[in-house]
């Protein structure tokens, strides 16, 4: 059962008074759609933290091999795996919405949204392959 949502307050004078709306705490737990929206938004936070750490590592790399000591503790590896899962979830949800955002016409006919979504996933796979190749090929020692 959904509890009464109104946590607002009375406003105005008698006879014209209204009960104002106030968003209840925990509103995002009331519907699955809201919950997964918050999860989607939240995943960007650890991702940002991980990228901040990457910037620190890049700054250290400027000092050459002697100053470069990438974090390799078990805790950081676990954190990185979790961040990877978050990044995948964020990317999949974001790219799945591309069909609603992009709108193209070819020969006066709109391109189906499924095709747009597929093209986004294709571009993502291609970009990942290029980055993977560059890292592996040029990372050989």
């Amino acid at each position: 059962m959904v509890p009464p949502p109104h946590g607002g307050r009375l406003g105005g004078e008698a006879g014209t008074r209204e009960f104002g709306w106030s968003m209840p705490r925990g509103w995002w737990t009331r519907r699955p759609h809201y919950f997964w929206y918050i999860v989607r938004e939240f995943t960007s936070l650890p991702l940002a933290l991980w990228l901040l750490w990457l910037l620190v590592e890049i700054r250290r790399a400027q000092d050459g091999p002697t100053g470069y000591h990438p974090h390799s503790s078990l805790g950081f590896v676990i954190f990185s795996v979790i961040v990877l899962l978050f990044a995948l979830y964020h990317s999949v949800t974001f790219l799945s919405l591309a069909g609603a955002i992009l709108h193209f016409n070819v020969a006066d006919r709109p391109i189906p949204s499924q095709l747009i979504v597929l093209s986004q996933f294709g571009a993502w796979a291609a970009a990942s392959a290029v980055v993977g190749f560059v890292l592996i090929y040029f990372g050989r020692t």
Binding site: H33, Y34, H103
Partner: peptide
């Protein structure tokens, strides 16, 4: 882009789509 507006629309209008396309 919560998207719930389009889920509840009784006429299938998809306002979330309108908003994202307007952003672009």
């Amino acid at each position: 882009f919560v998207g719930e507006c389009s889920v509840v629309c009784p006429k299938g209008v998809d306002p979330a789509k309108a908003i994202q396309q307007t952003k672009l």
